[in-house]
Amino acid sequence: MPLVFFITGASSGFGTELALKALSQNHAVIATVRNRQRAHEAVTKIQAQGGTILELDVTDAPACFSVWNEALQIHGHIDVLINNAGLAYLGANEDFTDEEVHAQMDVNFYGPYRLIRAALPSFRQRKSGTIVNVSSVAGIDGLPACGLYAASKFALEGMSEALARDVADHNINVLIVEPGAFRTNFLGAYFTNNKEHVEEYPIVKQVLERFKAVAGTQNGDPAKAAERIVEVVSGQGIAGSLKGKVLRLPLGTDCVGRFEAKIESLKGDLEKTRSVAGSTDFDEE
């Protein structure tokens, strides 16, 4: 059965691919971009396949609600909200300003949160809906130079975990998408600070240089990732059996490896501290 998708950040990368894949599977798509002119190529492709384009800056709180309500009128309802819009500030944690911290969180956390709040009334009323929050493997495993970006994705994931429990009784599904390294423009479009202390953090400098070196050669195929996401949401295709059965969708072999390493690290910390953790309870009478 065809679904109606609302996808943010459709001007490039995953957003464009998600819109095109959903349309190719006969779903209806309402995709948002910040500026039609700057996103002309993506807009043209999406509209050529029958998608609708709306302008939205997810940092504009009133617009998140008004654009969602406008989108609701197009097909009479929306089945799937995909929070894909995002950006990254990379560098030494010591160097970021309050303004940069706010900008990072505003797009990656507050933006999705606003749209979720806009979507929930109609989803609850219909007793149906899917919320897809596009996170990152950085939301599970924070690398050097990625502290601020990882913080925004950790926040998104923590909220999503609780949200999934909040809305389960209303037949609303939540899916956290965890891409590893994919061949999008991510490594060519991130923001850096003034790098004042990069020399004092060799590992930060090393990671940033590594990112520049591998840009454009990542193993992950965005089109295949978009296809898997649409399949999980729609319950069709090779990943369709996962619909409603998983909270997290890791994508990419590198993502799987980092997940496994993080799980082992958590298990190691738990075993080392188990007796200490238990020592903090009140003594039984």
Rank of each mutant, 00 (worst) to 15 (best):
A48T: 13
V107Y: 04
S24N: 15
K224H: 08
R34D: 10
Y149K: 04
M159E: 01
G142S: 14
I30C: 08
S275A: 15
E271K: 15
V246A: 05
G9W: 03
S279K: 14
E70V: 04
N84V: 10
G158P: 09
K267Y: 08
P144G: 07
E178S: 02
A28Q: 13
N173A: 10
A168P: 06
Q206F: 14
S152T: 11
R183D: 07
E227P: 02
G244A: 06
L20R: 01
K224N: 04
A189Y: 09
G147R: 00
N93K: 09
A39Y: 06
L90T: 07
L247G: 00
V134I: 15
D269R: 13
F6L: 03
A145Y: 00
E196N: 14
A155R: 03
V137N: 00
D221K: 04
G111M: 00
H102F: 08
T192L: 08
D269W: 07
A150I: 02
C64E: 03
K267F: 07
D254Q: 06
V207W: 03
D79I: 02
A39S: 15
G13K: 02
V67W: 05
P222G: 12
Q236N: 13
V233L: 02
R258K: 15
K212V: 13
Y190G: 12
E199T: 14
A239L: 03
L266P: 08
M1L: 14
A181E: 01
L23I: 05
K45W: 07
A223F: 08
R38T: 12
K127F: 13
S234T: 09
V207C: 05
L87S: 08
Q47G: 11
D60M: 04
N185P: 10
E178P: 05
A150V: 08
A61V: 15
L247C: 07
Y149F: 08
A164S: 14
S11D: 12
A42P: 11
D106T: 05
L120V: 04
K21Y: 06
K212F: 11
G51K: 01
T217A: 14
E199M: 13
E157F: 02
L54W: 02
V177Q: 01
I131H: 02
S160H: 01
E157N: 11
D106L: 01
V4P: 03
F186C: 02
Y110M: 08
